[in-house]
């Protein structure tokens, strides 16, 4: 298994092509096209994924998010860093997040 490197200094924010809805303890991401929701495909996040998503506000760096999550969840930093790198790659591949210029 290849361990992915976490790019700690990068800052991400939701792309302009997705809106977030919190419904009944679920975090749902809805792709939009123009001004309309694309209802053919939605995305849901689990608890830790939703926490990362909430912290991706275009202000916090990946490193800052990592530190916040270590305070929130019972997890070792190394494991969280690897999981976060993979999760961020998934979000980027799905065009759900964009890198925020520093």
């Amino acid at each position: 298994m290849v361990s992915q490197a976490l790019e700690c200094d990068k800052i991400y924010c939701p792309s302009g092509q997705v809106v977030t809805r919190h419904i009944a303890d679920e975090t749902i991401l809805i792709p939009i096209s123009g001004n309309l929701a694309n209802m053919e495909r939605l995305f849901t996040l689990n608890d830790s994924g939703a926490s990362i998503w909430r912290l991706m506000d275009g202000k916090r760096s990946v490193q800052e998010i990592l530190q916040d999550l270590i305070q929130e969840f019972d997890v070792a930093e190394d494991r969280l860093a690897g999981d976060m790198a993979e999760f961020i790659d998934q979000l980027r591949d799905l065009d759900l997040i964009a890198e925020h210029p520093v």
């Binding site: 809106v19 809805r21 419904i23 303890d25 679920e26 749902i28 991401l29 809805i30 929701a37 209802m39 495909r41 939605l42 995305f43 849901t44 996040l45 689990n46 608890d47 830790s48 994924g49 926490s51 990362i52 305070q71 929130e72 969840f73 019972d74 997890v75 969280l80 999981d83 976060m84 999760f87 998934q90 979000l91 799905l94 759900l96």
Partner: peptide, 21 residues
């Protein structure tokens, strides 16, 4: 859907699952 003795939530690997201005 959430703590251990340290007051932290139990951890699960973050996941995005593809399947509502």
């Amino acid at each position: 859907s959430n703590t251990n003795k340290k007051g932290k939530k139990s951890y699960q690997k973050p996941e995005v699952k593809a399947i509502v201005v």
